[in-house]
Structures are given as structure tokens and as C-alpha cells.
Design a protein around this nucleic acid. Structure first.
Lengths: 266, 266
DNA sequence: GCATCCTGTGAAAATGTGGTGACCGGGGGC
DNA sequence: GCCCCCGGTCACCACATTTTCACAGGATGC
């Protein structure tokens, strides 16, 4: 979730790598009609650019990339695990399709294909992503802090905490997962939108900035807790006091009453 | 039963609805070799059953379901949004494929198809699912201890046992295999992720740390039992009492002098 | 009982991890 | 163009955690 773009509605944003003008023509029309933003490229798009474009899905004809196609597919998929990738290419062998899918592609469609089917597959690929993306427009209130997604800002009472964009995205994510420990990788993945490079300390740094601002704005509470070797957890807690039970998370009862793992047999 | 040392994550659990014996034969072999649990059905499986089976993916030939296929597909997909659904069926029109995908199927593959490709597509679908899945992991409770994966922590009542990451992973593994004796090699393999060097005492050391913390947090119970020359077994047991058969839930204060049903040791 | 292997234990050594301040470059506003 | 804000990187430090070691206490087999 948390497409870093505030876009009220979320028209799917798509990048297409292909050169078949006829195909592009038809596909373009469909996408246009659906209101999905899309850009067409004739060759490999650098990963950085894809990130910057904030695309949600990529349609690619491996043929246009030549021999570097596999490497490119690999790179893109590992750098942007959340990206929906649909390979739409001509002739292919089972082995090629398997290789593509294993490399991280989400779907593989052979040309010629009906644009309607391609669209449906793009939708299918993007569907789950979107499902969890449901961003509650309702402000979240935790401790003294109130997080207003519509303002892109957090408040204490009516005073703004003055968060920057990234800081806000971070606190929104953390607060949205209240109580749960989020690992750095996941945080990075969801806030920054792509895979975290090993050794990247960005998350730590922003957590520090966030803590500073939160402490200045709400000195009597601690919000972000470190779980050594794991990640961070957001939970309002009065300084030097016991955790607040405002949001009681008493076990088992309200949590998914799923059958207890591991017992069961007998 | 149970995977011996899959070090990684859980084996994918798959349900197949099909009647084509040849296809099933080949597919079954592949799945077997991959170590994925699977069950084959000749007709529609009630949603409840699917839920109970805790499957992660469903492979279905719509043809075997007859006219009710669409309705069934709809029902399954809306009831289990997290389920990976791959339709693998014979002849089909673009309209049908689009309809299936729109209904919630994640992929659609036409028979005849190479089992390898089907496998790859199941993997692709599950991969995305895993990423998206907001693990609603139910906490597991044993004795007085409650293990919450979402917090990377174990609790007694609402007090944290204050486990480090490794300690947590260890107790999670042990508790997850409740009752079974796990050999050191296996424990190491699954917690540390690689083979244990001969003479490595890490497991012992961590078991000690765990015991210490558990005893401090829950003095009236013993949880980790040593099996000389073999390994360790996790089972809540009141001090100086007999092993409990029914796991006492929440309160746990009063130690029910449960009937001694001593488990025969190896 | 004795030799030997296995496990429990305490503590030191080694390693990993997170907090922090400083610094840098790009971009946008002016 | 100039300046400031912001995001991002680095190096350093403190310390939490993990690993290793040496030794002691039991268990096992003979």
C-alpha cells in the first residue's frame, strides 16, 4: 500500500516496453478509455526511472530488449518486488515462459493476443496489490497524535508536526500497522517503493527524524519502538508509564480465530 | 509426515480440481517432487473445506464443474481473496478467459499445457500472494506463554518475555513443533538457516537463555525438555506435575492437576 | 565404578545493529 | 542564479546480541 503519490483516485500507472505500433495503437486506446496512465518506451527503461514514474505495472515485449532481456527482467523484478510484470511477447517456448515467470514476471501472454485479455491480466496482477492498498481517508488518532492523510500531515491538537513527505509516509505506514513490528525491508519496500539495498540506513535516519519531531510535539509520549534485529513498532506509550490499553489487543479473542497452528492433530 | 528440513518457508499447499487422470498423474509427480502438499478433487470443493485445508493455491479445470463453474469461481474468489487461483482448462475463448480473470482468477492456462509451466505460474501467483498477504497469523498459546509472530515476541499475560530475535525464532520453532522432539541439527538448520558445524553449541546456549527467561516469566511451568543424545522437545508442563494434555488457555493461573498422561519418551 | 560422551553454565570475545551528527547534492522557490 | 529544504549517505560510537570456550555435572555403556 501507500503509493507515495497522493493521487486521490488511483488510476493504474503502466509502463509499456514495445515497438509494435499496431499493438501499441490498440492497447493505447484501451488504456486511454480505462483512464489508466501509461507511457510507452521502445527499449529498456532504467530501474530508477521506473521507480520515479511510480508505475504499478509493466508490460514488456522481451523481443524489443534483445539479448539483455533476461537480465533486465531479473533486475527489474528484484528491484521492484511490488511491481506487476506482464510479459507480452511473440513466439516462445515453455522453457522461456518458465524462465520468465521464475525470474519474477507475474504473467506471460503470447502475441498475438486480444488487448482485452492483456488488460484483464494486468488487472488480475494488480488486483491484490490494490486490495491491501485501501487507504483509510479517515484520520488515524494515536496517543496525542492525529494523522490526516488528506492533509499529508500529522497534528497534535491543531498544531502541525511539520513532517516532510517521507516522514509522513513513514509515520502513516507505521501507525497504520499499529502494534505490529515492521521489518526494515518491509518499511522501505512500502514507503520507498522498491527493494532496499543492503546497508541502507534510510529507514533508521527517518525514524530518528520522526522521533525528534514527535518528541518535540508530544513530549510525554513515545511512539516508535525499536525491536533490535527486527524493525520498528508503532505504539503510543506515556513516558515512564505502562503501555496504554486504548487499543487492547487481547489475544486470540478478536484475532482471526483460525485453527490453532500446530496443535490440531491428536 | 511433515517436511524434514525445508529450511525455508512452509511448503505450498495446493488443491486441484480436475478429472483428467493423465494430467493429474504428471502434475502429481511434479508437486510431489517439489514437496508441495496437494489434494485432488473431482468436483467443486465447498469453500469451507478450502478454508479448512488452508490451501494457498487452487488449480481448477472449469470444465469439470460444468455450468456452475462461473458461479463457483466467483464464490471462491470473493470468499478467499488471498487464495491464488489458476484456471487450467481446455479450449476457451478470449471472452471466457477475460471473464474468469475478472471474476478473480489470477491466471488462466489452456490445456494442453506443460506441467512445468503450470507450476511456474502457480509459483508466480503465490509469490505475489505472499508479498501481499497481511499475515493474520494467529498467536499460538502454550502453557502460560503466548507467542505472537506479529510482535516477534512471547508474552505471559501481557508482559513481554523480552526475547531477542534468535531466541524468538527458536521458541517459535519449538512451540510450532509442540510435542515432537527436534534434533539439534534440524533446529539449527531451520533457525540459523544453514548447516550446523560440528561441535557448535549455539543451540544449547540459546536453549539455556530461553529457559532462563521462560522460568523468570513463568516460574511454575517447564517448557523445554532435553532428550539426551537426541535434541529438545517443547511441551508445557507444570513444575512437579504431570504433563498437560489439554492446553489451558488464557487464565492459566490455577494449575489444573490434569490427569497424568505421560508421553512415552523415545 | 570407570571411561566417555553429552549437556548445562558462566563469562569473555567477537560480531552485529541502531543512534547520531555531519555532510553532500539536487530541486524548487524566489 | 542563489539559497534553503529535503532526502540520502557516511563514519563513528555505544551497546545488544551472538558465538566461542573452558569447565563442571550428569548420563550412558561396559
Amino acid at each position: 500500500m501507500h503509493d507515495p503519490i497522493p493521487s486521490g483516485a488511483d488510476p493504474l500507472r503502466i509502463a509499456v516496453i514495445d515497438t509494435d505500433s499496431g499493438f501499441l495503437q490498440v492497447l493505447g486506446n484501451r488504456l486511454e478509455r480505462l483512464g489508466w496512465e501509461h507511457r510507452v518506451h521502445a527499449g529498456a527503461i532504467p530501474v530508477d526511472t521506473l521507480v520515479a514514474m511510480r508505475v504499478g505495472a509493466l508490460v514488456v515485449d522481451l523481443a524489443t530488449l534483445g539479448p539483455a532481456a533476461w537480465e533486465y527482467l531479473d533486475k527489474v523484478c528484484s528491484a521492484m518486488p511490488g511491481l506487476g510484470v506482464v510479459v507480452c511477447t511473440g513466439q516462445s517456448t515453455v522453457a522461456q515462459r518458465v524462465r520468465g515467470l521464475r525470474a519474477g514476471a507475474d504473467d506471460w501472454l503470447s502475441k498475438p493476443c486480444h488487448p482485452e485479455e492483456l488488460i484483464a491480466r494486468i488487472e488480475a496482477v494488480s488486483r491484490r496489490r490494490k486490495r491491501t492498498e485501501a487507504r483509510p481517508e479517515a484520520p488515524i488518532a494515536v496517543g496525542e497524535i492525529e494523522i490526516r492523510a488528506d492533509r499529508f500531515q500529522a497534528f497534535v491538537g491543531d498544531r502541525s508536526v511539520d513532517l516532510t513527505r517521507r516522514e509522513f509516509e513513514l509515520i502513516e505506514l507505521l501507525a497504520g500497522a499499529e502494534g505490529r513490528v515492521l521489518e526494515r525491508e518491509e518499511i522501505y519496500q512500502r514507503v520507498w517503493g522498491y527493494a532496499m539495498a543492503r546497508g541502507d540506513r534510510s529507514v533508521d535516519v527517518f525514524v530518528r527524524k520522526l522521533r525528534q519531531k514527535l518528541e518535540k510535539a508530544s513530549p510525554d509520549w513515545r511512539y516508535i519502538h525499536t525491536h533490535f534485529g527486527v524493525g520498528y513498532r508503532f505504539a503510543p506509550e506515556p513516558v515512564g508509564g505502562a503501555p496504554v490499553t486504548a487499543v487492547p489487543e487481547m489475544p486470540a479473542a478478536e484475532v482471526a480465530p483460525a485453527p490453532a497452528r500446530s496443535r490440531a492433530l491428536a
